[in-house]
Design a protein around this nucleic acid. Structure first.
Lengths: 159, 159
DNA sequence: CGCAATCCAATTGCGCACAACTTATCTGGC
DNA sequence: GCCAGATAAGTTGTGCGCAATTGGATTGCG
């Protein structure tokens, strides 16, 4: 058990073991954290990706992003966002308006209800962070490592 | 509510900021890594969850797991696994057989093709690990932190 | 100006994830 | 042996996530 920690690459390339791979750890942790969010977001009638969209809109304030800009922030394409935004609009949280200057673009703005939701959800990240069992330093380190991995991968793709 | 958590959440800027949250970093990194797998697994006609199922089957060797046991290893339920296993069976990589001792159970075994695939895929984890840009120590630390988070969350759920 | 190339959002199709439910089988208490 | 409850796998329905395509708007180049 010890010497396999000492040699991640060698062991894995030799034996293809599930528990030894970062990829599975990442996949499992991501779904586990979504499980923590689900009952909390259910109180607000939201799914996790819908909540992420609202995070971006709250952050943007008076400057409603286009579907593309939302996609760039969340790394999601129109195939995912179009129906998701339709559901947020049907819930009365969001309005979609064709840009006057460029009719290809659709601007995604908050309704009063959508904007008001922000105040009611301020403690959500706190509740989720607690469930990880990590302390502050570990949370920050984890976030920064993951962000670095994501950016490394995306940089490679652009070339 | 502990104070250290509050300082984690509010470190980067105010409330509810996308880039400041571990949850988004995890979600983004998981999808980014799946993006790395996609073209590689395409060569073998597999999706990422199908590859994970094969990892478990290869690891088990002569002892074919039931659908439930597969589900416990991957944290997936029959609603996900049943159709996935059907597709693996249609691809000729897997056979599903009702247990003789307990006819509720379905044992998932490898075909010759499914078993042979292991040899052809030994270098897959290496190719993916390289794309993260992390060194060996970082990979091991990341994997262990994520595994700890996942287990903490699951322990909380069982209570 | 003309029009091909580009861009943007939406749509289609497929494969997860997961909740809720159904069907078949098994177990324990009597 | 009988049956209530538990268990296993499958099915249905919803919502992502992403590739590929479509249709309308815009840009740029000659």
């Amino acid at each position: 058990m010890r010497n396999w920690i000492a040699s991640y690459v060698f062991r894995v390339s030799d034996h293809l073991v599930l528990r030894g791979q970062v990829c599975f750890a990442l996949y499992a942790a991501s779904r586990a954290l979504t499980d923590v969010y689900r009952p909390i977001l259910d109180e607000f009638g939201l799914t996790y990706p819908q909540y992420l969209v609202l995070l971006v809109l709250w952050e943007r304030g008076d400057d409603p992003p286009t579907v593309s800009e939302l996609g760039a922030a969340l790394r999601l394409d129109s195939g995912t966002l179009s129906p998701l935004l339709k559901r947020l609009a049907a819930a009365g949280l969001v309005v979609r308006t064709r840009s006057v200057l460029d009719e290809r673009r659709v601007e995604v703005g908050l309704t009063a209800d959508g904007a008001a939701l922000r105040q009611r959800m301020t403690d959500v990240p706190l509740r989720v962070a607690c469930s990880t069992g990590l302390d502050e330093a570990e949370l920050v380190a984890l976030r920064d490592t993951l962000t670095r991995v994501t950016e490394t991968i995306h940089r490679q793709k652009e070339q």
